[in-house]
Design a protein around this nucleic acid. Structure first.
Lengths: 214, 214
DNA sequence: GCAACTAAAATTGTATACAATGTAATACAA
DNA sequence: TTGTATTACATTGTATACAATTTTAGTTGC
């Protein structure tokens, strides 16, 4: 078999994926030797991975105390959605000015798959991310892309997707369509407004989940 | 004498400051052993510092090739200012809704010092950053603060401040006052508009400097 | 039984040694 | 002379050894 040599980047991705998948929940402590052994590497690359995850905002790290998966409090979640609203709105507005016909067509093409996916929260979430990423890239701004990606990562700390709520799924798709429609006609103001509204209702759905779970 | 033990965090700050101060210019290659020896530590903490600077966006880093101080191209600079406009505008808008009387008074108190500073680009830049940071904190959003701080860092890669231009200094102060005025009366829309305009004219000044230097 | 102190174990931080990769220089052939 | 291949060197990547710090467990005194 392959047994390809693992590197720091592999360690990063492994931990990254574990956190995203919810395998490592907020509050979980990460011990370097433990991780190193489980991955079959030394502590050095593990430490590098941990530091990257820290600057990604997925871990908190106190000197001599170790790394812990970050736990978002209520206030942080509100702040997170507020900024997401601004950035996704900006992205949609820029996309309305810059996206090409084919790119817009690609957005429309994503809708059927979003509708068809049933009771598969993971896949629904993947398609949703793809949709938002496509618009974000349509804005052609590397800093914006980086920031939204960063927020998405933090979002993963919240656990299961809001698309798990059946009602939310249909609403989200309808909102997606409105965003595309505005982009398609080059209406930046409306595209931004639609995107902001979409994030706000996503926030509302999130709050519903949080209150259910508590 | 003290001879305090240096740690990874110190190495980070040392390099960080050298880049900000322009001591390490874009394009400069950073060799681990060289830095380690100059700081009197081993490569381990230096590597950690380099990785942090990389995720700060101050360095680019190719595997097995080493770290280089990032060089921003024309396109990147435009994108940088575009996002700064959005974020600083958002910050000013939120600040208009949330800042307290005393905080606003503190903003007004900063203006005289900004006016008095003469031919001291470094000090002028410091006061300017302080002003923007204060508004940013007035928005009470940790993610927003983090992002604007990150953009400020990248901004440092551009070299000397736009406040070096004599005409720009007066203009900037006038714009600062307009922003505060809007915040003081709680006019979020106007505060955002004023802040965005401020960043745009800063961008214009930046372009002037860039064209002069080339 | 509880509190505080002490010691030992666990864990992170740093230094160094070794491996892998990339770069540059040199030798050789066309 | 130029192009290429080979080899030596420089640099980064990983593993391990050691130091510093924190946490935990145990013991002693009250």
């Amino acid at each position: 078999m392959a047994q390809k040599k693992l590197t720091a980047d592999d360690a990063y991705r492994a931990l990254h994926d574990k956190i995203i998948a919810g395998d490592l929940k907020p509050g979980a402590k990460l011990r370097e030797v433990e991780i190193a052994e489980s991955l079959g590497v030394s502590r050095t690359p593990v430490r590098e991975a941990l530091r990257r995850l820290e600057s990604d905002g997925l871990l908190t790290h106190a000197p001599h105390k170790g790394a812990v998966v970050k736990q978002l409090d209520f206030q942080s979640i509100s702040e997170l959605y507020k900024i997401r609203e601004v950035l996704e709105g900006t992205a949609a507005g820029l996309a309305a000015r810059q996206m090409s016909e084919v790119e817009i067509a690609a957005l429309y093409d994503m809708l059927p798959a979003q509708i068809e996916v049933k009771d598969n929260e993971v896949e629904a979430s993947r398609l949703n991310k793809l949709f938002h990423r496509t618009i974000c890239h349509g804005a052609s701004n590397r800093y914006l892309i980086e920031m939204i990606d960063g927020l998405d990562l933090s979002m993963a700390l919240l656990g299961r997707s809001t698309l798990g709520l059946e009602a939310r799924k249909d609403q989200a798709i309808s909102e997606h369509r409105k965003i595309i429609d505005a982009i398609a006609v080059g209406d930046a103001v409306e595209a931004e407004a639609a995107a902001r509204k979409h994030i706000r209702s996503s926030h509302a759905a999130r709050l519903k989940i949080l209150l259910e779970d508590s």
